[in-house]
Design a protein around this nucleic acid. Structure first.
Lengths: 331, 331
DNA sequence: CTGTTAGCGCTTTCAC
DNA sequence: GTGAAAGCGCTAACAG
């Protein structure tokens, strides 16, 4: 319980300068004579002064907090993304504050973040509600999207070229003779929203002269292992011979459900996952997966946000390179 | 970009009362005539007023932020814990802010949280550095520990009875004829610190008339799948016939390494994990595991912290009930 | 029950 | 280059 409250005033007093000068030193304002700066620095060290972030926030109207909305922090894909964001945020001396935002509660999440006076927002997920999107606009806060495209197309989106990835994967499946390729989403949204995933998938089918079969578009209740596992019945009914899952936890759930029921993977059914998150090698066989540069996506998103907050403009659609990792669930 | 700055003053003015009254209404202070309260509420709605959290923090010296330090958010055990914490935090209108704190950087983590003026801290991990612990004391902030015991024994620790769990598991292994039971830690710390895990393990061995064999205490580099997988060589050398892993990711890593090398689990080696986190059923066979009530631990920890912040006192060592889940990696 | 009055610790014009 | 002073929006005594 040592001296808890060295203020800028104490430093100013002790150094024989004004608060304004101390403030300048602390904030790296160049308009300070080197000698003065040095003296102030010394006192800051001596007194172990740390600026009060709250007071600073009040006075400057900027908090250096940025809000990150994501569907589920226990999903390894999202938590890894958060890590990339956090690293860059620290680099720019921003702090991140996480908020869970499944599709039902994203508006509440946005609102709570805005009330916390965050300087900017990173929105991660498959979809955003109109209401949530409006609140972001209304608050006039910069925002960067990841995974999904900004429905208003005014804020940047960071991701791989999802459409291309799904196109490639679907094409490969077709080339390998697959006739019934299922697209397995993590919620119902991907069907209605004409997601990029669906577009890439459709493009490959169309090119090969096939139409999209609605039956083959199925969705888990949520992006989780159990929801994936629970898909077994549905999946069996549609008699698919291949599946592309939009989420790794769903992919592993489905894989294990198939294996547990004696279905051979990849011989009878091939599976492609989408995140290459930390769990893809926990199953046997290991999951094949589209491999987005997860950490980089987070990092680039955060970097983009810092630019936005400094009123720079950027491209609205940044596409990072991806790979396709061959595990044991595809041939 | 609607009206961004309705202040308490605007509300007061519009409602024909003083700022103080508005403040009282907003903070649920009972000393307001119902009629007045109603009037103020109405104006608040009309103007869509939201109190500025920052200003409130400055004036009240409490931010309603609590800092959560954990080793790795991408580890499912820790992220689930964070979820339990977050839920209760929201209930009490606290916000959590996460900080990564592996053993090397915990002091920096604590410091950054304190600079952010958090009202309290929850520390999660196997160990805490002296420096970090001191900073917490120095800041005079309440703190709750999870997983580890407060080295100064002044702040509460929330966990299952780890010693008992390890005692039981070890005893069961012995009863099943296991001769060489390895204890697999997630870092070197658990050996030196005479962790509760080690104590339970030792107790069971001693009771059975055996001594602890130092060779059988091994540690992964970090709590991660890869570190667990990399343990294969070491593990083979010690010729263990059973293993208790302190972390699920390590357990799965080790399991898969054994399987990939043709070792039969559980026939030749049995494995017991410790977290029963979301990944235990991703492997085949599924992991057997000690099952702490993860969500509850987080929830209870957060609840305990709220009590501490209200200057209530509590027991310093809360032990929650646990189970042992029989998967396929034990007989 | 309600209003007045100080600040909380810092940033930021605006003079000097 | 540096200082004085006016807030940022709110809470918390203290009166009444």
């Amino acid at each position: 319980m040592e001296k808890q409250n060295v203020t800028i005033y104490d430093v100013a007093h002790q150094a024989g300068v004004s608060m304004a000068t101390v403030s300048r030193v602390v904030n790296g304002n160049p308009n300070v004579r080197p000698k003065t700066r040095e003296k102030v620095m010394k006192v800051i060290k001596e007194l172990n002064y740390h600026p009060n972030v709250i007071a600073r926030g009040l006075a400057s109207k900027r908090t250096r907090y940025i809000g990150v909305l994501l569907p589920d922090i226990t999903n390894p894909y999202y938590s890894s993304l958060a890590l990339g964001i956090d690293d860059i945020a620290n680099m720019y001396e921003y702090n991140i504050i996480l908020a869970n935002a499944d599709p039902e509660h994203d508006a509440a999440g946005v609102e709570s973040l805005i009330m916390k006076q965050v300087d900017g927002i990173i929105f991660i997920g498959n979809s955003i509600s109109q209401e949530a999107r409006q609140k972001i606009s209304a608050a006039g806060r910069p925002c960067v999207f990841t995974d999904l495209i900004d429905p208003e197309a005014t804020m940047p989106t960071i991701n791989i070229d999802v459409e291309d990835a799904y196109y490639q994967v679907t094409k490969d499946f077709l080339a390998n003779g697959k006739k019934r390729i299922a697209l397995v989403g993590s919620d119902q949204g991907f069907k209605v929203s004409q997601s990029r995933q669906l577009q890439g998938y459709e493009k490959a089918l169309t090119e090969a002269g096939h139409a999209v079969n609605e039956d083959l578009l199925i969705a888990a209740k949520s992006p989780s292992y159990d929801s994936g596992y629970a898909l077994y019945e549905t999946f069996t009914e549609i008699e698919a011979d291949a599946a592309i899952a939009t989420d790794d936890t769903i992919a592993i759930g489905l894989l294990n459900a198939l294996l547990d029921n004696g279905v051979k993977v990849p011989e009878e059914v091939e599976i492609m996952a989408s995140d290459n998150s930390s769990i893809v090698n926990m199953s046997r066989p290991e999951l094949s997966s589209i491999a987005p540069p997860i950490y980089d996506i987070g990092a680039v998103a955060m970097r983009a946000l810092t630019k936005l907050m400094e009123n720079e403009t950027l491209d609205t659609d940044l596409k990072l390179p991806y790979q396709i990792i061959k595990g044991g669930t595809t041939s």
